[in-house]
Design a protein around this nucleic acid. Structure first.
Lengths: 197, 197
DNA sequence: AAATAAAACTAACAGGTGTTAGTTTTTTTA
DNA sequence: TAAAAAAACTAACACCTGTTAGTTTTATTT
């Protein structure tokens, strides 16, 4: 059995699917499009994958699991809450830097998951968000973070972190540490110049 | 000629299309779906509209024009740059509060515009972003804003402002001024508690 | 080299897509 | 109320959708 070759082939299909879904969106991407990029007929794809949705499902949960497992490490850090938020921002920069297409697809196309998968995915996201919200709450309680609405702060951070993919796409010279530094500067210190006024 | 009635009918179609596109996404929304919501056969829609894409085009440019015209007013304000950014955040909160579906569609579905319209839309957005970036640059030069990378700060702000729609969707009791206050707090003052440390 | 398994192919299905043509019904105008 | 315009309808076109069936080619194993 050509197990190795088969696995490689599936990985190749997956990789092409990622690029296609990101370019056109999941619904606008056809199996014939994908087949052409992979270099075979559409029907042949089904020797390697189960369905179109399987591709999407795999991307979404692979990325989701990655975020959640990394978040666990951040929660267990022995450090202040500013430091933890800094690590959270670093996590998102790193994930996008290493899995840009997958991260963008999970963020933008998850709604096309089948009902069962969608429910599970939304639950994962809900948990992820709740844990970040808790992180912020705790930081506020300890007086390390400014007394803002934790839910709103959480959404603000997570949304802000979404432009990383856009930036990555437009700039060849994507410097992860510069991006991270600037994101931390705006989100943690704010845009107002405290040296002034 | 039943001009009034016709206009109302088209507005009704437009409104239903907004809700449908937002729920399912543009590509996954069918003219038969839309027709059912409007209460007629799919073919009858074409007595009122030119094409499916016309609906999307109209939404995108209506919202785009709105943002740009409002930005002009902000630029001409006689006020400090923190105040101008505050106004920018207020603008986005207000647009989402008043045109939630349209704002979300313009943000998420514009890529399905036809080539010509897409080019024009992207150019509009490029200009919008450039002008905000310039606002930030000027603020930094004058020492009113912290010395961050202006392009990155611009993306951070605009992305952060995208969760408003999400928040609006999940919370019945959407209080625009509270949302605005918290967004300003995080983006302008930062999450770090300056009373502390 | 023969047997077996993997992976490609062609053809097609069953249903969905936006949209048009042509006709009938409803509403407005004269 | 007759004429005209608007807006609904049914039927259909031409094409696209994910996927399956069945067959042939290629690669692997014994």
């Amino acid at each position: 059995m050509a197990r190795t070759s088969s696995t490689n082939r599936k990985d190749h299909i997956m990789q092409q699917a990622l690029m296609l879904f990101r370019e056109k969106g999941y619904k606008a991407s056809t199996m014939r499009d994908l087949a052409q990029r992979v270099g075979m007929e559409a029907a042949s794809l089904y020797n390697h994958i189960k369905s179109k949705e399987e591709l999407l499902t795999e991307v979404c949960f692979r990325i989701g699991d990655l975020y959640i497992s990394q978040l666990e490490q951040i929660e267990q850090m022995q450090a202040g809450y500013i430091e933890k938020l800094r690590a959270l921002i670093g996590l998102h920069v790193a994930v996008v830097a290493e899995h840009m297409e997958a991260a963008e697809i999970a963020n933008h196309e998850f709604r096309h998951l089948s009902k069962t998968h969608l429910t599970r995915y939304l639950e994962m996201r809900r948990v992820y968000e709740a844990r970040i919200e808790k992180l912020i709450s705790e930081g506020i309680e300890k007086g390390e973070l400014a007394p803002v609405n934790p839910a709103m702060a959480m959404y603000t951070i997570l949304s802000a972190l979404r432009w990383i993919g856009l930036w990555y796409k437009n700039n060849q010279n994507f410097n992860a540490s510069v991006v991270e530094k600037n994101l931390c500067a705006v989100l943690l210190q704010g845009l107002e110049n405290k040296a002034n006024s």
